[in-house]
């Protein structure tokens, strides 16, 4: 039996929130930015209780990783929930660097480079 040394981890089955799934139909990168879709916050018909705090939080743009931290969800759980929400249009997913080919386009690398130089 391994010691449960993790302070923030509640003793519940985390993936109960996703009905056991560890993947969503749509796998979001952990750095993907998400924003709650207009009109989603009051949309209780489409939203289940797991979605509501996420919809509230993402009224300001957040990354998947930040959603996980802010709502004390394991990263994988946040990814599944957000993937589901993106699928049904509750959140909007912004472009990430690796979108098409998995490799960031040169133009974006140049943008990152000049951004870093100006820091």
């Amino acid at each position: 039996m391994e010691e449960l040394s993790n302070d923030a981890t509640p003793i519940v089955r985390p993936y109960a929130r996703t009905r056991g799934r560890t993947r969503s139909d749509y796998d979001l990168p952990i750095e993907a930015l998400v924003t709650t879709a207009d009109g989603a916050v009051g949309d209780d018909a489409r939203m289940n209780p797991e979605h509501r705090p996420i919809a509230d939080l993402c009224r300001q743009v957040q990354s998947v990783a930040e959603v996980a931290v802010r709502l004390a969800l394991p990263l994988g759980v946040a990814r599944v929930l957000l993937g589901d929400m993106a699928r049904i249009g509750l959140v909007i997913v912004h472009a990430t660097a690796g979108d098409a080919t998995g490799q960031p386009p040169v133009a974006l690398l140049e943008k990152v480079l000049s951004g870093l130089r100006q820091l």
Partner: peptide, 20 residues
């Protein structure tokens, strides 16, 4: 995987992007 799946670019915020 449905190619029509998100990411859905939101016109008002399409310029936002992230890298890691």
């Amino acid at each position: 995987p449905d190619p029509a799946m998100p990411p859905v670019p939101d016109p008002s915020r399409a310029s936002r992007s992230s890298a890691k």
